[in-house]
Measured scan of single mutants.
Amino acid sequence: MDGTRTSLDIEEYSDTEVQKNQVLTLEEWQDKWVNGKTAFHQEQGHQLLKKHLDTFLKGKSGLRVFFPLCGKAVEMKWFADRGHSVVGVEISELGIQEFFTEQNLSYSEEPITEIPGTKVFKSSSGNISLYCCSIFDLPRTNIGKFDMIWDRGALVAINPGDRKCYADTMFSLLGKKFQYLLCVLSYDPTKHPGPPFYVPHAEIERLFGKICNIRCLEKVDAFEERHKSWGIDCLFEKLYLLTEK
């Protein structure tokens, strides 16, 4: 054995408090879109979701699917093309516009009456609605409950000090017999300040354990050449399924 860690023996890093005071403002996230600093976007979609999607959907149609901090995630069109209703929230209007443009979807925009100064973008087909606002303002819009949440790049982007508020927001959107698919990253948080932030299993239990059954479905090596600039040499991604207790 050469000592290389595999996707099945990932350790939890003990120094989980080192990132707790890290803060990125909404304006800084918007600047990332304006300046093209969106390496977190996956042009081909998320491979773990693609692998498990049909198993999760079980042939159902007409589900309501929520994408927190959606950006221009191509997976939104995957669900819409399968007959589901997609709702996303994203602070960057540019990111939302790029989604519709890159997916060749016509759309309209209208003000969100409950949140002055914000807009919702709706596909002409009517099954994709993307709200351009802070996720913490979203419950004011009465958008209803969801059958499924796809959380990739959301919890790991939320400032650590806001995670409890974020989890409570997610709980307010969950319908009966929900499936909450959650991706988190595992790396040494003493070497990279984030975002994306390190979210250990214990944190998921703390945030969601009282209401959800929590199961880790898969762990994969997600390290890429660009991650060397973070000062790390190891990065794993974990896919969790959260269901109603």
Score class of each variant (00 low, 15 high):
G45K: 10
D81K: 05
K72D: 05
G194Q: 03
D162G: 06
V34R: 12
E11H: 12
K58S: 14
L155E: 09
S125T: 15
K20L: 13
D2Q: 08
V220P: 03
D147V: 01
E43L: 10
T6D: 10
F236W: 13
K51W: 07
H201V: 15
H84V: 07
Q103T: 06
V65F: 04
S106P: 12
Y187G: 07
V23L: 13
M76Q: 01
D15P: 12
P68V: 01
F100M: 11
K164G: 12
H227W: 05
R140K: 09
Y13E: 11
R215Q: 13
K219Q: 07
F208H: 00
L242F: 09
K72L: 02
A80N: 14
D147L: 00
R82T: 07
Q42F: 09
L130A: 03
L69D: 03
E114V: 05
E12P: 02
R226Y: 12
L49K: 05
G175S: 06
F56D: 08
G59A: 11
P193L: 08
G62W: 06
I128Y: 03
L53F: 13
V89W: 04
F171L: 11
A154G: 07
G88M: 01
Q103F: 12
Q103W: 11
T101D: 12
E203F: 06
L48D: 06
C234W: 13
L235N: 11
G3F: 04
Y131G: 00
S106R: 09
S7T: 10
E102S: 11
G83C: 03
L207K: 04
W230M: 07
G62F: 10
N104V: 05
E205R: 11
F223Q: 01
V86E: 01
W29P: 05
S124H: 08
S92Q: 02
M148Y: 13
P196K: 02
L241P: 00
F223V: 10
G3Q: 15
F100D: 02
L24S: 10
W150L: 06
D15F: 09
K51A: 10
L207T: 13
S14A: 08
N213S: 12
F136S: 04
D151Q: 00
K176G: 13
F67G: 00
Q22C: 14
Q42P: 06
E224Y: 06
L26T: 06
D188L: 04
K145E: 15
K32H: 12
N213Q: 10
R82E: 10
D15C: 07
K51V: 11
D54S: 13
L207P: 02
R215S: 09
E43M: 12
E244L: 12
K77L: 10
P189I: 05
T16P: 03
C234Q: 14
T113L: 09
R152S: 09
L138W: 04
G126C: 12
L182W: 00
C70S: 09
E224V: 11
L235M: 15
Q44T: 10
H52W: 08
V87A: 13
D151E: 02
I112Q: 04
N21E: 12
P68S: 01
E244S: 12
W29Q: 07
F197I: 15
L69K: 10
S108K: 06
E110K: 15
L241C: 13
K219L: 07
M76A: 03
I149T: 05
R206A: 14
D31I: 15
F99R: 01
Q44R: 10
G45Q: 07
L207V: 09
E12V: 06
I232G: 05
S124Y: 11
E75P: 03
N159C: 11
A154L: 05
F178V: 02
V87F: 11
K164V: 06
L235K: 05
A157K: 04
Y240V: 02
L48S: 08
G231I: 12
V87L: 05
A73Q: 11
V199A: 03
A222E: 06
C133W: 00
K37F: 05
G45T: 12
L105R: 01
M76R: 01
F136Q: 04
G45I: 13
K72V: 02
I158E: 01
L105H: 03
F66H: 02
G71F: 03
T6A: 15
G153D: 15
N159P: 02
N142Y: 12
K60R: 13
E102G: 07
G36V: 09
A222K: 10
E98A: 06
F236E: 09
I204W: 00
G45A: 09
K164C: 13
G175D: 14
T113I: 04
L24H: 07
V199R: 01
E43A: 12
F40R: 05
P200A: 06
L174N: 00
V74H: 07
H227N: 06
R215E: 10
H46Q: 06
F236V: 15
T113E: 13
R64Y: 02
K32A: 13
H84F: 13
I128C: 04
I204A: 00
L239R: 05
G194T: 11
Y13H: 10
K77Y: 02
S129I: 12
S61C: 14
W33S: 06
T141P: 05
P111Y: 06
K238M: 15
N213Y: 14
L94A: 07
S229Y: 15
L130R: 01
A222M: 14
F146N: 02
Q97N: 03
Y180G: 00
F79V: 08
R64S: 10
S229G: 13
P116S: 13
Y166R: 00
D233G: 12
K77A: 12
F100R: 00
E237S: 10
T190L: 14
R163W: 12
K238R: 12
V156A: 07
L173D: 02
L242W: 01
D168R: 09
G71N: 04
C183L: 12
L239Y: 02
R215G: 13
E11V: 05
F208G: 01
W33P: 03
D31M: 07
C132Y: 02
R82D: 08
V89Y: 02
R226M: 12
C132D: 02
L69S: 12
T25E: 12
K245V: 05
V74D: 10
G62I: 05
S92R: 03
V184W: 00
A39D: 05
I143V: 15
S123Y: 05
C165N: 11
L241M: 04
Y180V: 07
N104Q: 14
G83D: 02
L182S: 01
D151P: 01
Y131R: 01
G194R: 08
S92N: 06
E98W: 02
L130T: 01
R5P: 06
K191W: 06
G161W: 08
G231Q: 15
W78N: 04
R82F: 05
E98R: 09
S108A: 09
L181G: 07
R82A: 11
I112R: 04
F66T: 00
Q30W: 04
P193R: 09
Y240A: 00
E12C: 10
G36F: 08
N35H: 11
D15N: 07
Y13L: 08
V34G: 09
L217R: 02
Q179G: 07
E11T: 05
R163N: 00
V87G: 03
D147I: 00
